[in-house]
Each structure stands twice: as structure tokens, then as C-alpha cells.
Amino acid sequence: MSVKEQIRPAVEGPLGALGLLIEDIAVTPAGRRRLVRIWIDRRLDDSGADSVTPTPPLTLDEVADATRAVSDALDDTGAMGEQPYTLEVTSPGVDRHLTEPRHFRRNVSRLVTLTRTEAEPLTGRIVRAGAHTLTVQVPATRKQPASMVDLPYADVSKAVVQVEFSRPADGERDTDSMDEPDTDSVDEPDTDDLDEES
């Protein structure tokens, strides 16, 4: 069993208790250490209802709590073995492609560029994301008026969030924190002492 395969079951429970889930795990050599990166995100409700409002980004406090929970779980289970490692827990940045319905649900109100399998790419704002389809508001151009486009996820081969420096207001949402991933790192030294890095 690979290190990644040992990490996931060790940390899924503690993260789930915080209302979080694992998006991805990467383990890479870093000199005599290993760098363990774990991307996390907020767990959405499983009701199957369409999302039409923005999902709040993870706060720095939530990422810090997740980092402590992951570090404790890795120490308790011994999933990393004896080799020292550096742990980085982060939320996905806007550069990560949207590949699952939950990714689209989390990005309601964001501007995205969609590559479609049998049509021209389009750029628009997600106004609704459900279990199987999404609705995108496409702005007016010289050639066509503004429109709402419904798309099955199966027709989208690639989806990328566009970074906006000025976005329409979406309530109390902190837009600055959405464009940069929240990170908190724990450096696992050779001794039993734990140094936290920000």
C-alpha cells in the first residue's frame, strides 16, 4: 500500500468530524524529508438540492484546525513511518479544474470558462449547479444578447474558474480569500516537538 493510500483512511475521519473532505493528496520528496500536501474543502449537504448561492470559503482558523487534526491522526496511526515530513494542508486554489458536480456547486457566482465536447467554449457565471446539470449566465457580446445556458456536466470536458479582481457582490462573502488558497503548514521535525508554520 502506497503512502497516499495509508494517509487517506487515517485522516478522513478527523476531517469529516470538522465538516471537511479530502480533495487530493500528494507526497513528494523534499531532501531528507517528504512534503505531504492535502487539499481539503467544505463538505456540502447531501440532499441533492441545486446550489444557487455561494459557498463560504474556508477560513484560516478552519484550515489551522484541520492541520492539527491531520497531524495528530498521522502521528497516532504511524501512516508516515519514521521518515520526517513537512505537512501542508490547503484549500483548492482557483487554478484547479472543476471536475465533479460538487466543484461546480462550490463555485456558484464565479465566472468560469467551459470547454464543451460538441460546441464552442463559453465563458459565463455559474448561477445554478445541481447533481447532473449547471446553468451559466453568459454576458452579452456584440454578436449576441445575454443568455442563460443549461449544460449537462457530461457535455463539459474542461472547466476553469477565471480570476476576477472586481466581482459582483455576493453577500458577506470575502472575495479576496477566494482567489488565494488558505494554507497552514506543520513541520514534522526529527524530535517529538511540533513546529507550526504559517
Rank of each mutant, 00 (worst) to 15 (best):
Met1Asn: 04
Met1Asp: 06
Ser2Arg: 05
Val3Gln: 12
Gln6His: 02
Glu12Gln: 15
Pro14Cys: 07
Leu15Phe: 08
Gly16Arg: 02
Ala17Gly: 10
Ala17Pro: 05
Gly19Val: 03
Leu20Lys: 02
Leu21Ser: 14
Leu21Phe: 09
Ile22Phe: 08
Glu23Val: 15
Ile25Arg: 03
Ile25Lys: 03
Pro29Trp: 01
Pro29Arg: 07
Ala30Ile: 00
Gly31Ser: 02
Arg32Asn: 10
Arg34Asn: 11
Arg37His: 04
Trp39Ala: 13
Ile40Leu: 12
Ile40Thr: 07
Asp41Ser: 12
Asp41Cys: 09
Arg42Tyr: 07
Arg42Gly: 12
Arg43Pro: 01
Leu44Ser: 08
Leu44Gly: 12
Gly48Tyr: 00
Ala49Asp: 13
Val52His: 02
Thr53Val: 08
Pro54Trp: 00
Pro54Met: 01
Pro57Lys: 03
Leu60Met: 09
Leu74Asp: 06
Leu74Pro: 02
Leu74Met: 07
Gly78Ser: 07
Gly78Met: 09
Glu82Ile: 11
Gln83Trp: 00
Leu87Cys: 07
Val89Asp: 01
Ser91Ala: 05
Pro92Met: 00
Val94Arg: 10
Val94Met: 14
Asp95Ser: 08
Asp95Ala: 06
Arg102Ile: 04
Asn107Val: 03
Val108His: 06
Ser109Glu: 15
Ser109Ala: 13
Leu114Tyr: 04
Glu118Lys: 15
Ala119Asp: 13
Glu120Ile: 06
Gly124Asn: 07
Val127Ile: 13
Arg128Met: 09
Ala129Glu: 00
Gly130Pro: 07
Ala131Leu: 13
Ala131Lys: 13
His132Asn: 15
Leu134Pro: 05
Val136Asn: 12
Val136Pro: 11
Gln137Gly: 11
Val138Ile: 15
Val138Ala: 07
Thr141Phe: 06
Gln144Ala: 15
Ser147Asp: 14
Met148Ile: 04
Val149Pro: 08
Val149Tyr: 04
Ala154Pro: 10
Ser157Gln: 09
Lys158Pro: 00
Val160Gln: 14
Val160Tyr: 03
Gln162Trp: 05
Val163Trp: 02
Val163Asn: 03
Glu164Val: 00
Glu164Met: 08
Ser166His: 10
Arg167Gly: 06
Arg167Asp: 05
Arg167Met: 02
Arg167Pro: 03
Pro168Glu: 10
Pro168Phe: 09
Ala169Gly: 11
Ala169His: 07
Gly171Thr: 02
Glu172Leu: 11
Asp174Ser: 13
Ser177Met: 12
Ser177Val: 14
Glu180Pro: 00
Asp184Gln: 14
Val186Cys: 12
Val186Glu: 11
Val186His: 13
Asp187Gly: 08
Glu188Ala: 10
Asp190Pro: 05
Thr191Asp: 15
Thr191Ala: 08
Asp195Ala: 12
Glu196Asn: 08
Ser198Leu: 15
